[in-house]
Simulated assay, not measured.
Amino acid sequence: MGTDRALAGLPHAGPVGVFDGGIGSFDMVRRLRAAYPKQDIIYLADRASFPYGSLTEHELLESVSRAVDALVGLGARSVILASNAPSVTILDQLAERSPVPVLGVKPPIAEALRAVQPDGRVAVLGAGMMIDSSALAGYVASEAANVGADEQRVVRVRADELIDLVESGEFLKPAVASEQVRGFLARLRATQEGIRALTLSSTHLPWLAGEFKRVAPELQLFDPADDVVASFASVNGGSREGRGELLCVATASERHTLEEFQGIIEALELDIKPNLITLVGGEP
């Protein structure tokens, strides 16, 4: 794995590695920094593997395993896989391989079902790979059973168009974001009745939470990151001895360049500078 001198001086006091295939996982970074101000974080945007939803489960496991190995190599004492699709489909296999604790993000279906009892329905929004997976079907059945609900009250909905909207940075244009969210919800309502709640089950989707609230204030929104942020202290102790340092590293490909990622960062007005790395076995 290649890196540069910018990585050399980071004080590692129990840093956590946070990653996914794009900008979506930075929302998790923001949440962690707010909850644990002294936590040191290594944020990896694995752009060379984006989108995770296009990979087979085998390819996905190999990809996220390389990312975890890279983060551990940089000093991470725990890792958050800030992507719902691999968390639902291959998290257990990843955790068995990892030398450090790994947390994932999964749709908060039971919580949403409890909130819309007795007959409201929940739409799980996410990447197509997760939505179509047998792993999610099993997870939905388990979560519904946990609260004594009919699993038919849970609707699985592909939201790839909204994920791409965020990853491209186009969501920063208010008119574009509003049109896309309105169209998405109109199509959802035309095919599914009784939707009372949405789970934002891609780490990209919380970037659109404000738009969802403006377009459909009657819908309850559930963010999978909530459970991870709440449980993180028990895994990593909150690392209160840290200094609140943030290191950003990124992979790149011909399709998704470092310059493209830097442009999105600047458009979001984030004060971070990505350092280019190459994951062992990954794309250069």
Rank of each mutant, 00 (worst) to 15 (best):
G2H: 01
R5A: 15
L7K: 04
P11Q: 15
H12T: 09
A13V: 05
D20K: 00
D20R: 00
F26M: 14
M28Q: 02
R31K: 14
A45G: 10
R47I: 09
F50V: 15
P51K: 07
S54V: 03
T56N: 03
E57P: 07
L60C: 12
E62T: 10
E62P: 01
A67Q: 13
A67R: 05
D69E: 13
A70T: 09
A70E: 12
L71H: 04
L74Y: 04
I80L: 15
S83V: 00
A85F: 01
V88C: 01
L91G: 06
A95L: 07
R97H: 09
L103Y: 02
L103F: 04
K106M: 12
K106F: 04
P107N: 01
A110P: 02
A110D: 03
A110I: 02
A112C: 08
L113I: 10
Q117H: 10
D119P: 02
D119Y: 03
R121W: 10
A123F: 00
L125F: 09
L125N: 13
G126F: 00
A127G: 08
G128I: 15
M129D: 12
M130G: 04
M130Y: 04
I131A: 07
A137P: 03
A149L: 09
A159H: 01
D164Y: 03
V166R: 12
E167M: 09
E170P: 01
E170D: 14
F171R: 10
F171H: 14
A177I: 11
S178D: 14
R182T: 11
G183C: 08
G183I: 09
G183P: 07
L185D: 03
L185H: 07
R187S: 14
Q192K: 12
G194T: 07
T199H: 08
L200K: 13
L200H: 11
S201R: 10
S202Q: 04
L208Y: 02
A209T: 02
G210K: 12
F212L: 11
K213C: 07
A216C: 13
A216R: 15
P217W: 11
E218Q: 15
F222K: 12
A225T: 01
A225I: 02
D226H: 08
F232Y: 03
A233T: 11
E241P: 00
G242Q: 06
L246W: 05
L247M: 13
L247E: 05
T251H: 02
T257D: 08
T257G: 06
E259W: 00
E259Y: 01
E259T: 14
F261N: 09
Q262H: 02
G263R: 12
L270N: 14
D271M: 09
I272G: 05
K273L: 10
N275H: 15
N275F: 07
L276A: 13
L279D: 14
G282W: 08
E283T: 15
